[in-house]
Amino acid sequence: MIPPVLSSLIQVFIFPGFIFILSYAMFCEWVSRKFVARLQNRVGPLYTGWEGILQPLADSIKLLAKEDITPKAADKFVFALMPVAVFALPLTAIFLIPIQSLTNLWGYSPIVSFEGDLIIVLFLLSVIILSIFLAGWSSANRFGIIGATRAALQMLAYEIPLGIAMIGPAIFARSLSIGKIVEWQAQSMHNFLSAPNLMAIPVALLLAVGFIICTVCLLAELELRPFDSPEAETEIVHGWQVEYSGKKLGLLRLGHDVKLVLASALLTSLFLGGPIGPWPIPPVVWFLLKTAVCVLILSNASALFARLRIDQMLGGSWRYLAPLSILYIMAVQIIAGLM
């Protein structure tokens, strides 16, 4: 038996914490790059490791070894701090999501869990927006500032439907803890399989609507293609990342990968049943499979669409997504009351 201190250290740093999440984030970047390349009739990274699987690792090591330039006009402290925040905050949020328990092969539990951790995840997502804004603002570059303003505008607009849609499963589960929501999904699936009733159909349909709203909002949070005006290369060079080089850029890229994992992990645990699946396969495998499917959905959307204009992006949120999510939450309330 491992002593509890050692066990929690292993949980935070090795599995399912730091090292596991980082390697999975790099793997997800590779999957997404390969997938987008195949959709565009290319092959993508090919010569770095097997089929280019080490490409994100090579990118990160190269960036860590490069010269680190701080512009003279930049706010040096904030400029140096924000890449760390952009990297650390999504990693912290992943600690709240159930993946696999260390002691029990068939058990799953988040590293940290308490009533209301869904709110903490939403809060961390908002702090990520703030740190992205400060990252662009502190670089004192005109493209950086425009990119930062666009990023803040876009993410705050999509934060609201995202938050509302994420509360939907919480109302059904009557709990604000992600672990309890996952348990509710397992329990109701079990109930449905043992005694099918018609009430499950509207619940499943509503969860599907919530999944779609969440996917669209997470695309905006991740600045993927239809919503990539904050880093539009053709107009504002690289948006808020423009002045970052060397290890700070490496941290920003890793932070983006971790955010991709966080987004798919949130979709997985709120709508797809988290790390639960049919018995002989351990939860971590189910978690990896389901998040990989979510990564493919997100990168498919980003390969499929062209960039939206700013007014289209904002209108899409306030005119369509926000009312849709309010209708959705009303329907969820009614159905949950009938149950």
């Binding site: 790059r33 390349a37 290319r42 092959v43 993508g44 990274p45 090919l46 010569y47 770095t48 280019g52 490409q55 090579a58 990118d59 330039i69 290369e233 053709t234 060079v237 690289h238 990342q241 423009v242 002045e243 970052y244 080089s245 850029l249």
Partner: peptide, 16 residues
């Protein structure tokens, strides 16, 4: 031709 096979990406900013 796909230069990304070698890991090359076209970047907009000289800092990257």
């Amino acid at each position: 031709f796909d230069l990304e096979r070698f890991g090359a990406l076209l970047k907009g900013s000289p800092r990257h």
